[in-house]
């Protein structure tokens, strides 16, 4: 299904098309990687809603990115439970290993490193979300292994269209 059809399917779930802006943005972001102005305009046009409404939502919610992010978005939870279980050390570790700071993207465009609020998986703190997947009970060794497998995965997929590639397994 193309982006327009997917958005139409989502819109059919609501009595008001404005409600479909959030699902449409999620769909558009999946298709485009992030949400630059022209994509927001397209979403507004498909739904027939005001552009500013789309822009408002694209900036209010943290899962939407109006700027590009790396191939793998490393989202480390540093909220209370993860902090108590050592998230700070993990962040420092990743900053060293990847050579980027919080919010940065590696020069090869592979990794963007962020900290996020509680991921709702405190039983396996410290936790990091990458793509659709949660990785819990992390320590430096597990992190290294994870980054390694992501790199390998990216290598294997180098010839595949990134948008249609499955995300790496758990």
């Amino acid at each position: 299904m193309g982006m327009r059809e997917q958005i139409e399917t989502a819109a059919a779930r609501y009595p008001d098309r404005r409600s479909a802006i959030m699902p449409a943005l999620l769909i558009a972001q999946k298709a485009h990687g992030h949400l630059p102005g022209p994509v927001l305009e397209e979403v507004a046009d498909i739904l027939g809603v005001e552009r500013i409404w789309v822009y408002e939502l694209a900036t209010f919610y943290t899962l939407f990115h109006t700027e590009p992010v790396g191939r793998f978005h490393l989202q480390l939870c540093d909220n209370i439970a993860c902090m108590l279980c050592g998230a700070e050390r993990l962040l420092a570790h990743m900053e060293t290993v990847l050579g980027i700071g919080k919010g940065g993207t590696t020069p090869d465009g592979l990794f963007t490193l962020s900290t996020v609020e509680c991921l709702g998986a405190c039983e396996m703190a410290p936790v990091m979300q990458v793509g659709d997947d949660y990785h819990g009970n992390l320590d430096a060794a597990r992190l290294d292994a994870l980054l390694g497998s992501l790199r390998a995965h990216a290598g294997r997929l180098a010839t595949v269209d990134p948008a249609s590639a499955p995300s790496p397994g758990e």
Partner: peptide, 19 residues
Amino acid sequence: AVALGTVEKGMDTAVTGFE
């Protein structure tokens, strides 16, 4: 006109137009 809107949230909240 629905030209002005509010972007971001919390302390970053700002009033502006599309893009």
